[in-house]
Amino acid sequence: MRAADEAALHRVARRRARQEFQRKERVDVRYSVDEKTEILAEAGRLGLAGAHLVGAIVMGHLNGDLALPEQRTTTDDLIDELAALRTQVARIGTNVNQIAHRLNSGGNPHPVDSAVLAEAGRVLAMVKQAVTAIDATADVAATQQRAA
């Protein structure tokens, strides 16, 4: 699965908010055993119920947030790739933070610890700038897409 596809699915599935009243209406859908297995596996990976995942995808499509594969634009792909990139860059920041925390936790410092800490601070600043730039770019792309 491409990063853009996974990001789009995750974005739409997580966006579906609970409603104040219980949903009582049903739409029955039939799947093959393999299709059902895939749906439940993906829902489990995302921490969702299978019905929630299917409902979120359908409602996302109806609300214009999720296009069918043949309806996707390059802007949709760009936004979702940026979301996936942001996640990866943020993970780098988390890892650097963990390294800095370990070095600052006391004990017997090594001679290179101060240099590593300084570099960690520089990398964290770069990660923050990258995340901010990614967010701004995704926002511009989404705004232009809505205007179109």
Results as ranks from 00 to 15, higher is better:
8 A>G: 02
99 I>N: 02
77 D>R: 13
28 D>H: 14
28 D>L: 15
132 T>M: 14
114 S>C: 05
148 A>I: 11
85 L>G: 06
35 E>W: 07
120 A>M: 07
96 V>W: 00
26 R>Y: 12
132 T>L: 14
89 V>M: 07
92 I>K: 03
96 V>E: 01
94 T>C: 06
40 L>A: 04
106 G>I: 11
125 A>V: 09
89 V>C: 08
7 A>E: 00
143 T>M: 09
46 L>M: 11
75 T>E: 09
29 V>M: 09
136 A>D: 13
118 A>S: 13
48 L>T: 04
60 G>C: 01
6 E>G: 10
58 V>H: 03
82 L>W: 02
106 G>T: 11
148 A>L: 14
89 V>T: 07
75 T>Y: 01
122 R>S: 10
12 V>R: 02
138 A>R: 06
129 Q>T: 13
32 S>M: 06
95 N>D: 11
116 V>M: 03
31 Y>T: 06
72 R>E: 08
63 N>I: 03
15 R>I: 02
13 A>Y: 00
4 A>F: 01
103 L>M: 11
143 T>I: 07
63 N>R: 13
139 D>W: 14
131 V>G: 02
140 V>N: 10
118 A>L: 10
49 A>H: 13
71 Q>N: 10
96 V>Y: 01
92 I>Y: 00
57 I>F: 06
142 A>W: 03
24 K>I: 13
11 R>Y: 05
92 I>D: 00
81 E>K: 05
10 H>W: 09
101 H>N: 13
21 F>W: 12
52 H>R: 12
134 I>T: 00
49 A>S: 09
114 S>F: 13
97 N>H: 08
22 Q>K: 15
94 T>D: 12
126 M>T: 04
54 V>I: 10
85 L>N: 05
10 H>G: 07
8 A>P: 01
102 R>D: 11
54 V>E: 04
11 R>C: 03
11 R>I: 01
53 L>Q: 00
128 K>Y: 05
42 E>W: 01
23 R>W: 11
125 A>M: 12
31 Y>W: 13
107 G>D: 03
100 A>E: 03
41 A>F: 09
27 V>R: 13
8 A>V: 03
59 M>Q: 15
22 Q>F: 14
133 A>Y: 04
48 L>Y: 05
129 Q>V: 10
1 M>C: 10
72 R>A: 07
142 A>R: 09
26 R>K: 15
60 G>M: 00
22 Q>M: 15
